[in-house]
Design a protein around this nucleic acid. Structure first.
Length: 792
DNA sequence: CTGGAAGATCTATCTTTGTCCGAA
DNA sequence: CTTCGGACTTTGATAGATCTTCCA
């Protein structure tokens, strides 16, 4: 009954939470001018929540808490086993420490997360406000987007699992009569394969009609459901009254009650019930992280219901084995069947429709629990427009998304995947060149001549692959294929990657580069240096000179180090040992070694420091050095333990010393406390036998070698100090004060002014030595004794 | 309504081997 | 005396991204 989501899902959620919590702290705003948030004076603790609910909850968006709610499939007894990559999240793991927000699982397997509200920001003094959120908010939105997307995808996978419910499929299969079944499974027509496809399409159409009769759409949507929310709408709390369970899902599908989404999911179940390879397709609509507006403009709220929900979130795909293509069916919303070639009817068009339904992540969930991103099929301008709005627009985001897809994809690769991939590649080819400047910026396939970077150059003889008219046809810009671009680097930059120039390599480009800053700051600025750039083809892998054979001497640079920026820079017969103690170990063994510079640290002015990542030693010394490191680490550990023991003994010493001094005083001058009198005067006299060992003028402590004293002492606590104690027979306590001092104190005591003066005379450093039995020969600390508590 | 030009503003990148002084 | 380690100080130019405003 466990909800076995991959840990990285939760890490992500924690990250979002952490990001939000970080916002609560006060921090300087980077942007000076910001728009005041109108709602800043409302509820001091509004909750922010993502609601992913499988039921058609009637929650309205406004004024609801923000909660992530994942209804797991666990209540149906099905195990959700998502693959765990085991690898680290793309972000540093320490990012996830000290998470304080509540992330709780209740017994029913519902994960609920409460995200603290984002901080409202004050308006700057500037008269003109920029409607852009801060950088922190930008990051928060990114994480929020990811968490939201993750929840949606997991939700899709769970619903897809429900669709495979055997009871549901058994009952639905009765709706399909034999004729219809045969239509859905046509014979292969060798002469005219299209005829088979035709039959299949007919069958699907009939299924759709049948389903429309079966299904009574009670209401379309009561809230925003799975449609995209604006950032303002994610602030408000969302009430989650109902959560759908698998049983409830099955019941509703069989009854034919529910909204469009449920109807489509039911339709997929219907097709699967007669063994059609049908996919549930879901277009995930997390809030748009590329929308950086602090506030939505008021006009954008004026979207009509029909426009907002015109295009579906869920639809269906059926595999046509004759044409080797997926057929798209939207049985409830647009009620269409299509074979997507260059554009789909399901792709939202128009500004108002895109406000609530921005096609970015379309995932296909098949009957074998496969999960694929099939956005390519439906987005006609995937490379130029859609790509920019996806979290995959950055490398870490892309990595994360791949991991999520991979975790949800729980089947082996099939031929169908190959065909689909081929189709997607073809679509990429066919997409063509964008017809405006904006879409050509950062386009994965095309590049404008003016957008070629300073360290890039076109391949020789490469021709432009198209033209772009700008300025109403008054100007024509050349467009090149990105494949024809070559990245260039200077010799030094190549060296940092472990590559050196080949003999006879030629300069591809020469750029002007202002000289180092340090020099320009001293006054000789304006000097420019030429930087020669080379392509990767003009370089080869750097092979460091080998260590000399018997003694293992390694060639070092002017600073006595060896540069190991990449692993390939280690000499072939050497090894890099990455340990902070490696240098010590190599020194100790007196073998040849070189400190390895793995990079540089830039901070504080213009200074940079090399980062020593360990030592490089010849391979035949590695074993010795590693064991020496082990030894060093072990001895460090021992030292650490000894230090702890010493500290403990010292603490005991202080305690005992205080006790003994007190009892000695009590014995010598009588009990001060009202409840007793001094005893054991004889013992005290005995204990002063060893005072010759001490130089301290006023007293000291000699640890007791006898075992029974050690047994007796550890039960004491500070509170015991005020009790009358038995001085130890062999105790090492010595009042090392001179006789005269003691007598003078005694004298005072007899006159009845005990406390103040006697303390003064004893308010001296006490020295004691360690017991040989406990551990080694170390010097005891000097401790100033404080007797003030004995005044009482 | 869309897209381009120009300007404003912000962010990311590139940089690529210190010195002084006190404690141990 | 040497050695070790922490404090010191808080760069700065520039390319590129992304926003706004205005206009066609």
């Amino acid at each position: 009954m466990d909800n076995n989501l991959s840990p990285e899902h939760f890490q992500l959620i924690r990250k979002v939470l952490r990001e939000t919590s970080r916002k609560e702290q006060d921090r300087p705003l980077k942007r000076k001018r910001r728009k005041v948030h109108e709602n800043s004076t409302k509820d001091p603790e509004p909750k922010v929540t993502i609601s992913i609910d499988s039921s058609d909850s009637d929650s309205r968006v406004e004024d609801k808490p923000e909660v992530v709610d994942l209804q797991s499939a666990s209540d149906a007894g099905k195990e959700e086993t998502y693959e765990d990559e085991g690898s680290e999240d793309y972000d540093d793991s320490d990012e996830f420490e000290d998470v304080t927000e509540p992330v709780t699982f209740d017994a029913a397997g519902v994960l609920s997360v409460t995200i603290a509200p984002k901080q409202e920001t004050k308006k700057g003094s500037g008269a003109k406000a920029r409607n852009i959120c801060s950088n922190e908010e930008r990051q928060r939105r990114r994480y929020y987007h990811m968490a939201y997307l993750l929840c949606l995808m997991v939700h899709g996978a769970i619903v897809n699992d429900w669709i495979n419910n055997s009871k549901l499929l058994r009952k639905l299969s009765k709706l399909i009569d034999e004729n219809l079944f045969n239509l859905l499974h046509p014979e292969k027509d060798d002469q005219m394969p299209l005829r088979s496809t035709r039959k299949l399409l007919d069958g699907l159409k009939k299924c759709m009609e049948l389903w429309q009769k079966h299904w009574k759409v009670k209401k379309r949507y009561s809230g925003l459901e799975y449609y995209m929310r604006s950032w303002q709408e994610t602030d408000g709390p969302i009430d989650l009254k109902k959560t759908l369970t698998e049983n409830e899902f099955v019941r509703r599908v069989l009854k034919g009650h529910g909204n469009c989404d449920l109807a489509t999911q039911g339709f997929v179940a219907l097709l699967r019930s007669c063994n059609v390879n049908a996919r549930l397709v879901m277009s995930c609509q997390p809030p748009d992280f590329t929308n950086l507006k602090e506030q939505e403009s008021p006009t954008s709220r004026a979207d009509t219901y029909s426009n907002s929900f015109k295009y579906p979130i869920f639809w269906c795909e059926v595999w046509d084995k004759f044409t080797k293509k997926w057929i798209t069916i939207d049985p409830t919303n647009l009620k269409t069947i299509e074979q997507v070639r260059n554009g789909s009817k399901l792709e939202p068009r128009g500004v108002s429709a895109c406000r609530r339904n921005m096609m970015r992540y379309v995932i296909g969930l098949d009957r074998k629990n496969g999960c694929k991103d099939i956005t390519r099929r439906y987005a006609s301008w995937f490379n130029s427009k859609c790509r920019k709005r996806r979290i995959t627009n950055s490398a870490p985001g892309s990595e994360w998304y791949d991991k999520v897809i991979c975790a949800l994809h729980r089947r082996k690769r099939t031929r169908i995947d190959d065909y689909e991939e081929e189709y997607f590649n073809q679509r990429d080819e066919d997409e063509g060149m964008p017809d405006n400047l904006q879409d050509l910026k950062n386009h994965p396939k095309f590049v404008l001549e003016k957008d070629i970077r300073i360290n890039q150059v076109l391949k020789p003889n490469s021709k432009e692959c198209g033209y772009l008219n700008v300025n109403h046809g008054r100007q024509v810009l050349k467009v090149f294929d990105r494949k024809d671009l070559i990245d260039l680097k200077s010799a030094k930059q190549w060296y940092m990657e472990g590559r050196i120039l080949k003999v006879g390599s030629r300069v591809r480009k020469t750029i002007k580069k202002s000289k180092g800053r340090m020099r320009s700051m001293t006054g000789i600025d304006g000097e420019v240096e030429e930087e020669r750039l080379y392509s990767i083809d003009d370089t080869e892998l750097y092979h460091a000179p080998l260590a000399s054979s018997p003694d293992g001497k390694i060639e070092k640079n002017a600073y006595g180090n060896i540069e190991v920026f990449v692993p390939s820079m280690i000499p072939a017969n050497c090894c890099l040992i990455e340990s902070p103690n490696a240098i010590k170990a190599a020194k100790f063994l007196e073998v040849e070694y070189a400190r390895a510079v793995c990079g540089f640290k830039f901070e504080r002015g213009n200074s940079s420091k090399p980062i020593i990542g360990g030592v490089v030693v010849a391979k035949w010394f590695v074993e010795a050095v590693v064991s020496a490191i082990d030894g060093i680490e072990y001895s460090l550990e021992v030292d650490e333990r000894q230090k702890q023991e010493l500290k403990a003994l010292e603490d005991w010493n202080v305690l005992l010393l205080k006790i003994r001094i007190k009892s000695n005083l009590n014995a010598t001058y009588g009990q001060i406390q009202e409840h007793g009198t001094a005893t054991n005067k004889d013992d005290i006299n005995d204990s002063s036998a060893d005072d010759s060992d001490f130089e301290a003028p006023a007293g000291g402590f000699l640890p007791v070698p006898n075992a029974d004293t050690e047994a007796a002492q550890p039960t004491m606590t500070d509170s015991d100090e005020h009790e009358k104690l038995e001085p130890q027979e062999e105790g090492g306590f010595v009042v090392a004060a001179s006789e005269s001092k003691l007598t003078s104190v005694k004298h005072d005591r007899t006159e009845g002014t005990c406390a103040a003066k006697s303390q003064k005379s004893l308010d001296l450093d006490e020295k004691s030595e360690a017991d040989e039995e406990t551990d080694g020969s170390y010097e005891q600390f000097m401790e100033e004794l404080d007797f003030s508590d004995q005044d009482s």
